[in-house]
Design a binder for these strands. Structure first.
Lengths: 257, 257
DNA sequence: CCGATCGAACTGGTATACCATATACTTTCG
DNA sequence: CGAAAGTATATGGTATACCAGTTCGATCGG
């Protein structure tokens, strides 16, 4: 390195501390990871986030924390009530059904695009991935199937070749994962889900965009209908207070680079 | 009011200054309005936003401005480069095609839902709205058709009854409007667009979800293909500098109440 | 006259102090 | 003893000071 970039005098080689990364981004990532990790719908009581405590815990000032909170709030993971606190949001049944509906829209489009443009190798890889779960016993695997399930859907999105689709589904998946963990244990949804997946794979292999789209949509909407029927427990009011003061808007979508 | 809520002594009736609204929200709204208003793709040079200048102009400190910027950045309207400045983002052709693709996915789902659940009155209202443009001469109306076009698509979204669909398309529409203003003047896209719209309305009236969905999708994807073919001018590099320093992620989607 | 170098001004990132209000606790009066 | 009123504390919102890196122009050397 000295040869390529000669220096007049020996200097302390510092490992190029990363510019570009800011406390805000790190705080955002940390908080989102934390929220994703905990199963939102398992905890009984409301979860409150304290700016000052967090800033103290992360070792930064409140400013980056606040900016991270702003992001999380817009993404719908958190809700801040002035002079009250910041609370982790729990979606209602209806909101979850809507999320799954949107997921159906985006995923079916992704399946269509994948059937048209995806590489054969990627489709083969997807089949191989899912085959692992068919061979093993489906008893104990069910636990980890929740993750494989997400992986399958994310693969479809990725194979669409549309980065924006990936971006817009990213946060939906976080909620999706929490929901799946619950619904997957009900009835024989895991088995049915696997069967659906293989039919979708077949449609991709057959390069049948219309069929792939339809199967993906029906698969997702099936889940939506299931939640609609059996998801009433989602609406149980964990919080005693339900005073109004609804934030006017608050539903935005990001479209960025 | 005195009767319902008796007061011991006459007090100064103050017009209930609005709590709930914060400088951040107002700054966010103002900035977004400004960005929406100006046609992003008309300006030749890069547009830079200065926190201090804005805070001075709006009469608030930098803090709310920064928080608003954080939101706008996540939504993909601006990009902040540390120690350089904040710039209004101009989408590339590819990104726009992807946006239209996502739009196609969401809108086709909306059309399906609308065909299933929308009120007859709303569908009739939609037809009436569009009929106004068929009767008049299509020459001068073309200018204002751009807005009516957006209105049509937003109506479809609304009629789906899915609030999340509305939320996720909200920002897409802002870019969409800018694009439409350009493409609408090319070929006879306005005429074709109107024809498509009427076919969609017919599908809604016929309560044919599959057909409504397909028509909506093809309508949008047709625009995508058009941009793909004739939208090369979108990629002309307005800015001389194209140094890297890519923000890692940056594509998020909001899902909130 | 031209180029390299140095520095002043500018810009976003961060820390911190202060404010207004919601909430909980304490006090006081009936 | 209980309820209402007053007070202390906590919390998010806002303003501001300071920091580090970038930009660009002035100045010095050739």
């Amino acid at each position: 390195m000295f040869d390529a970039n000669p220096r007049p005098s020996p200097t302390l080689e510092v490992p190029r501390l990363d510019t570009g990364s800011t406390f805000r981004k790190e705080a955002y990532a940390a908080l989102k990871r934390a929220i994703t990790a905990m199963d939102i719908y398992d905890h009984a009581q409301e979860i409150r986030l304290d700016e000052r405590r967090l800033s103290e815990g992360l070792g930064v000032s409140r400013t980056p924390i606040r900016e991270a909170m702003t992001l999380l709030e817009q993404e719908g993971f958190v809700r801040t009530r002035p002079r009250r606190g910041i609370f982790v949001v729990r979606k209602t049944k209806r909101e979850i059904v809507e999320m799954i509906t949107v997921m159906a829209a985006l995923e079916s489009m992704a399946a269509r695009l994948a059937a048209e443009h995806a590489a054969d190798a990627d489709i083969a890889e997807l089949r191989r991935l899912m085959a692992e779960f068919q061979t093993g016993n489906d008893g104990e695997r069910r636990a980890e199937y929740s993750d494989a399930n997400i992986a399958f859907h994310q693969a479809i999105i990725r194979m669409s070749g549309c980065a924006l689709l990936a971006g817009m589904t990213e946060n939906l998946f976080i909620h999706m994962r929490a929901i799946r963990k619950i619904t997957i244990h009900q009835e024989n949804r895991a088995a049915r889900s696997i069967a659906d997946h293989f039919r979708i794979i077949e449609a991709l292999e057959g390069r049948d965009p219309g069929r792939a789209e339809r199967l993906a949509r029906e698969h997702a909407l099936g889940l939506a209908a299931h939640v609609e029927q059996h998801g009433d427990f989602l609406d149980i009011t964990h919080n005693s207070l339900k005073n109004g003061s609804r934030s006017d808007a608050g539903m935005e979508s990001g479209v960025s680079k």
